[in-house]
């Protein structure tokens, strides 16, 4: 079996993360639906309570910090739906995780294509 641990800078979503992140990911999965996105924005705390998020997950949602959300068991595909509520795309999310400005992150992407 593959050992997927300790690939530098690369979180891997395995059983442990799936178990820990279930409530958070289930909430983010619900954001496929526009009515749910609206309900979340109207009452974030109530919405998180309905999905039984842990304290760590609630704090991560409040922080809007992707690294913290992943540490709380978030899966990148479901977190993308949370990011979408705020109009953030994968460059915004990449810049945040790498500590770059958006412009620097885009320049980094472009530099790898040459």
């Amino acid at each position: 079996m593959d050992d997927l641990s300790k690939i530098p800078g690369t979180p891997i979503f395995q059983g442990e993360q799936a178990k820990r992140g279930y409530a958070l990911n289930k909430m983010c999965f619900s954001f496929n639906d526009a009515a749910n996105r609206k309900a979340f924005l109207a009452d974030e705390e109530g919405y998180m309570a309905r999905y039984h998020l842990t304290d760590e997950q609630r704090a991560a949602i409040r922080s809007r910090n992707v690294g913290q959300l992943i540490a709380a068991g978030g899966n990148t595909y479901y977190l993308a739906k949370f990011a979408g509520i705020f109009g953030l795309n994968v460059q915004d999310v990449g810049a945040q995780q790498t500590g770059m400005t958006i412009e620097a992150f885009k320049a980094f992407l472009a530099s790898q294509g040459t």
Binding site: T10, V66, T98, F108
Partner: peptide, 13 residues
């Protein structure tokens, strides 16, 4: 491509 982690943005042409 890689979307998550501090290696986000990695491309290997």
């Amino acid at each position: 491509h890689q979307l998550d982690g501090t290696r986000a943005g990695f491309i290997n042409k």
